[in-house]
Amino acid sequence: MNIFRLAGDMSHLLSVILLLLKIRTTKSCAGISLKTQELYVVVFLARYLNLFTRYYSFYNTVMKLVFIATSVCIVWYMRFHKVVKQTYNKDLDTFRHYVVIPPCFLLALLVHHEFTVMEVLWTFSLYLEAVAILPQLILLQRTRNIDNLTGNYIFLLGAYRALYLLNWIYRFFMEKAQARWISWISGLVQTALYADFFYYYIKSWKNNEKLKLPA
């Protein structure tokens, strides 16, 4: 474990906790994309299958369970909670997210480290996570006023994989870890998708004004 990976995991954990707090306290999921949340459930289920087959550490196991539980909980709130589901921007969250699943799976069948079920699903989860934020970013452009909690949630979510990029650089040089091209390229694509959000988020933070993405 290195400081970059720990910071990345904490940023990721904080983002999901922030989102859950926003939904629970405001009883609203306005501005949040259900499509992105559902893609994240698929990402975590496909990636954390080794939860039952390999024990790395208490930390690793607990964090996997937390990410699976929180992502399922958020989808439950947005789909079934009687008050929260009324606040879902159904008409704005129109990205057909099931469209991205088959290409990611097909790519995982073609490009992977090893052709086994676990490895292909793990690779699929990396490709899917790289594009999972798209519905949320598109919804943001359609949302007039983005509340602070949502902005912070997306910033932390983007920051986590950016920190993982630093973690991979650290591991490659310091631990002489072998090249992880699939993780590296997926992580780069994922972080690049946040580029313009980061720009407008930091700009709004510097000028102390409301976060606004150009349509």
């Binding site: 990976r5 390999r54 690793n60 964090m63 480290h113």
Partner: peptide
Amino acid sequence: NPKLPQKDEL
């Protein structure tokens, strides 16, 4: 096997 990257990350 050693060639597979460690899955110790989240």
